[in-house]
Design a protein around this nucleic acid. Structure first.
Length: 604
RNA sequence: GGGGAAGUAGCUCAAUUGGUUAGAGUCCCGGCCUGUCGAGCCGGUUGUUGCGGGUUCGAGUCCCGUCUUCCUCGCCA
């Protein structure tokens, strides 16, 4: 070993020992003759003292941050008053007798001490440097600990860890697939899995009645702060279960990992909220229960109020909804109206409001509240003296919901409802089995086509499919969907009915999912499961706003990797080997010319 | 595909209604300094203001285009 100890383990009890450390130079405090170096590694920081009395510093003239230094010396108790209580190793220092620069480093491309404030583009370009920072190391330690705890707990509960293919079959439903050409089968392509969904169902048929896997999934869709094209799921599936069984396992799992990682007790069972209630009260299918702000419906009052903006929206098939903000009547007009930008950003025309003071109602909406509608509005909103109400009206219900969702988030923040470290879990249940495809009007699976319909709604599967509820459940934490699952269909005939409802002919269904349909014939037990988004979970537990922070080498919003430059063009030979031709070959650099078929004059 | 924000020194930022030589902190380089821990003090270097065009006597600032990054709608079974 090139070191005897790490930079985080030396204490007063080691005084007198000779040790050798290897670490990065964190900071240097140069007093001319005497130099102090904080040597840093994954485990901590230790002060190394270079004194002319103990070491010949002639060869150590150009010490700089982030060089790798190997130091041998004796541990000494720091003189009184020189101890650093903020450092675990602050009682001692290493009096260096030998110091070797084992890894040089040029001036850094970004400010190491700048924290996460440094340009993300630059940090991810130099991610290997960025990840050296203690706050980044903590995130990945947390990530590792989480995965360890998840596996351990599930292992104890009898789950078996099984793997599924990465090169698999494209299924046109759901997200866009990432495709991989097959050299041995020219013109044919694999797809990377969007999830191991069907495979884990086959495990159930195979009798592995409790399966789990921490697995990478791929979806070729646009990116967001909480969405990357490749992401990690904790996937699990159980046979012979109903909703409550899966939910109970997950609640135990969450309580266990949160306790193990943060020491916090999580109260179980989690609240269950129906999809409809979530969308109305919290304006989101992933309610953030850290705030108790609630949205209320008032479309029915619009006509009575006589406010054209409201009634017009409702008549056009939209909605008017409001939210009461306790104690906000004292906000300045400017402050109140500053939030309008948030809803406008979601497509709303504006943000109406009304406040109630000792003198009565005031604000733009107040003058429409003199009649019966106004009385009802005040009653329904619960508007008290000192409160404010915001209203959003739009001809599109979706715009209203999206606007209020963002508004609620901002208000919760502004009112101080969002406490650091708070973890509020809930289940969202009773999802519809299908959504309506906006283009065609036909039903598309809300979750995926293997989700079991609610038994009470089975008779409506053909007659009014959009009314059928699913046996699906989402796990929500602090306003993020961190997991989603369902009880699956385990009878072949029901599976075929669902395929038919989404417009898949028996032939199509067979060509796409023959292996599943086949398996369901051969003794499939009832089963269900869930998948958790590991990246999102870690992000929330780490207190971050983006999953990029907890992914070692994330992609930019355009799906590129700042570090490697992926994706790239490949050689014609590589393409030929896999039997592919690029339809629109790369244009020569710095050429504005559109595809010029003569190809001769593209130089100019 | 749509909406929004940002891009000025290696880094983080500033620069009045368009105005003269684009500044500060930090990093870096040099000097001083034996008890610091964000060490201190003194001095110094650093710019195609993302790129291309335009308006103007004059553009970091205004206009058009474009690139990059971020947020977001759609999309994400």
């Amino acid at each position: 070993m090139l070191r005897s100890h790490t930079c985080g383990e030396l204490r007063a009890e080691h005084v007198g020992e000779e040790v050798t450390l290897v670490g990065w130079i964190d900071t240097i405090r140069d007093h001319g003759g005497l130099r102090f170096i904080d040597l840093r590694d994954r485990y901590g920081r230790t002060q190394v003292t270079l004194s002319p009395e103990t070491i010949d510093g002639a060869e150590l003239t150009s010490l700089r941050s982030e060089q790798v230094l190997q130091v041998t010396g004796r541990i000494q108790s720091r003189p009184d008053g020189m101890k650093n209580p903020r450092l675990l190793t602050g009682e001692i220092e290493v009096i260096a007798t030998v110091a070797t620069l084992v890894g040089d480093c040029p001036a850094l491309p970004f400010d190491f001490a700048g924290g996460d404030l440094v340009n993300e583009e630059l940090r991810f370009q130099y991610r290997f440097l960025d990840m050296r920072r203690p706050e980044v190391q903590r995130r990945f330690q947390l990530r590792s600990d989480l995965q360890h705890q998840l596996r351990n707990h599930l292992h104890e509960k009898g789950f078996i860890d099984l793997e599924t293919p990465m090169l698999t079959k494209s299924t046109p439903e759901g997200a866009r697939d990432f495709l991989v050409p097959s050299r041995l089968n020219p013109g044919e392509l694999y797809a990377l899995p969007q999830s191991p969904q069907i495979f884990k169902q086959l495990f159930m048929v195979a009798g592995f009645d409790r399966y789990m896997q921490i697995v990478r999934c791929f979806r070729d869709e646009d990116l967001r702060a909480d969405r990357q094209p490749e992401f990690t799921q904790l996937d699990l599936e159980m046979a012979c279960v109903e909703e409550d069984d899966v939910i109970e396992v997950l609640e135990g799992l969450m309580a266990h990992v949160v306790k193990a990682l943060t020491g916090q007790e999580v109260e179980t069972p989690f609240r269950r909220i129906s999809y409809d209630e979530a969308l109305l009260k919290y304006s989101s299918d992933a309610p953030d229960l850290r705030s108790d702000l609630e949205i209320f419906e008032m479309s029915d009052l619009a006509e009575d109020l006589g406010f054209k903006v409201f009634s017009g929206a409702v008549e056009a098939g939209g909605a008017v909804r409001g939210v009461r903000v306790p104690g906000a009547a004292e906000w300045s007009r400017k402050q109140i109206e500053s939030l309008e930008a948030i809803v406008k950003n979601q497509g709303a025309g504006g943000l109406a409001w009304m406040k109630r003071t000792e003198d009565g109602l005031a604000g733009p909406v107040a003058r429409f509240c003199e009649g019966d509608g106004g009385t009802q509005l005040v009653e329904r909103s619960g508007l008290q003296v000192g409160d404010l109400c915001y209203f959003v009206a739009d001809r599109s219900k979706r715009v209203v919901i999206n606007s209020l969702s963002f508004l609620r988030k901002e208000l919760a923040q502004k009112l101080g409802h969002i406490q650091p470290g708070a973890l509020e879990f809930c289940w969202v249940t009773e999802f519809p089995l299908f959504d309506e495809d906006e283009a065609t009007g036909s039903p598309v699976p809300c979750h995926h086509p293997f989700t079991a319909p609610h038994p009470d709604d089975l008779d409506q599967l053909e007659s009014s499919p959009l009314k059928v509820r699913a046996r699906a459940y989402d796990l929500v934490l602090n306003g993020f969907e961190v997991g989603g699952g369902s009880i699956r269909i385990h009878q072949r005939d029901l599976q075929e009915r669902v395929f038919e409802a989404i417009g898949l002919s028996p032939e199509e269904a067979r060509s796409k999912f023959s292996f599943l349909l086949e398996a369901l014939k051969y003794g499939a037990p009832p089963h269900g499961g869930i998948a958790l988004g590991i990246d999102r979970l870690v992000m929330i537990l780490a207190g971050d706003d983006s999953i990029r922070e907890v992914i070692a080498f994330p992609k930019t919003q355009r799906g590129t990797c700042q570090l490697t430059g992926a994706p790239t063009h490949v050689s014609d030979q590589q393409l030929e080997e896999v039997g592919l031709r690029v339809a629109d070959p790369p244009k020569p650099a710095s050429s504005q010319v559109s595809g010029d078929e003569t190809g001769d004059s593209t130089q100019q």
